[in-house]
Each structure stands twice: as C-alpha cells, then as structure tokens.
Design a protein around this nucleic acid. Structure first.
Length: 200
DNA sequence: GAATAGATTGTCT
DNA sequence: GACAATCTATTCT
C-alpha cells in the first residue's frame, strides 16, 4: 500500500469509469498530529447537464455548483439538510459538470480519531457508511471546496482493488424521473461499510 | 430489521 | 420561504 497520490491523469476519464475505478482507492487526510485514511467502497456518478439528478442539471452554474465546472481531480463539497457535508470528485474536462459522490468508505488509518469525531465505537459500520458520516469521520468540509486532490492535505492515493463490484440505481434521487433508474452507483460487494446494503 | 419524523442551514426562487 | 445526492432517535414488528 503506497500513499503516493494518484496523478492528475487518473481523473482524465469519463465520469462513469472514474466512479468505478475510484473503488478501493484511499482518501488520505493529513492533519497536525492526526493522519486518517479510508478506502472508498461506494460511489455514485452524476453527469450534468443532462442528468436531472445532478446539481448541474440543465447547466445550472452557481456559486455552489461552480467546482463541478472546474478541472477534474478537484473536490466538490456541499452542505446537505443543514447538517451533513458530502464529498465529490470532479470528473470531465473544464466546463463539463460531472462529479462522483463518495457514499461510503472503510476506515484504514486513524480509526480511533474517526471514532471520536463520530462519537461511535471503532469498527462499527456507522463510522463511515454514508456520505455525511464519512465527511465527519475524515473531517472534510467547506474548507476543501474546489481543492486539488493530488497535492495538499487531502489527497486520493492508490489502494487495494475491490474484490467484486456491484452496481445499482443511485440512492435518494427519486425526483429525477428516468435518470433515477440508471445504475450509476458502484460498490464493493460484501463490504459492510456500503451505505444501503444490496442483496448480493 | 423496517418505517417514521424531526433536525438544521446554505442556496436559490 | 422552500427545499435538499442525510442522519439520528424512536417506535414499531
């Protein structure tokens, strides 16, 4: 296991294949005295402007969605329901508002630190089995908006490839009509940190 | 385990 | 003023 950040070229790929290839990669957040790392086990692809489930649907470009229109391999972070942050990796070249939502991770390093932040016992799936939970565990928030993911305190590095990959429709996007039916969620089968366990 | 309701705030209409 | 790519506690079974 190396902690060398993935190169910029890794992100130069269509959003669906990027969502698939991010599985198994490590999110590494280095802080003063406390490094934490976690392995990505669940992702979802969002492909505006056509995809009506994406914040960038119909080309909506605002202060909030601006990062999605930026270069790939950068972070798109947004606040949800007033209480939870969600972390996305921007895909596609500039002006192509695609992104991959990280929905669940498996703690690897600094598990005690994550447990304290989450106020749950270590090794429980509630540590990071959801978009908001993993942001709290890894301490990802608005400070990371638009930041580059191959240099700086928050990077994505290579990690153990997933054993088996499953696909399903995305979670909680029922409002998007036909787009909600597309199987744009990717997850590692049998991994207990996957947020909404499918039957596999 | 499943279903339900309430929390809470930045962003956009 | 409404809403959201969610989380948590609570109340069932």
């Amino acid at each position: 296991m190396t902690l060398t950040p993935l190169p910029a070229a890794f992100y130069d790929t269509p959003v669906l294949s990027m969502a698939r290839s991010l599985l198994g990669k490590l999110i590494v957040h280095s802080g003063p005295g406390c490094d934490v790392a976690a392995r990505i086990v669940e992702t979802e692809a969002y492909r505006g402007p056509l995809d009506l489930a994406a914040h960038s649907a119909r080309g909506r470009r605002t202060a909030r969605t601006e990062a999605m229109f930026g270069p790939p391999g950068h972070a798109y972070v947004f606040l949800l329901y007033g209480t939870s942050w969600a972390f996305n990796v921007v895909a596609g070249p500039p002006d192509t508002p695609h992104a991959v939502l990280i929905r669940a991770v498996e703690p690897v390093l600094g598990i005690e630190t994550m447990a304290e932040r989450r106020r749950v016992a270590p090794h429980r799936r509630e540590l990071s089995n959801g978009p908001g939970k993993l942001c709290q565990a890894l301490e990802i928030d608005r400070r990371h908006y638009g930041r580059c993911l191959w240099e700086g305190p928050l990077v994505i590095a290579d990690g153990p490839a997933p054993v088996r990959v499953g696909r399903s429709p995305r979670i909680n996007v029922d409002y998007a009509g036909a787009w909600a039916k597309k199987s744009w969620r990717f997850y590692e089968r049998q991994n207990r940190y996957v947020s909404v366990p499918p039957r596999d």
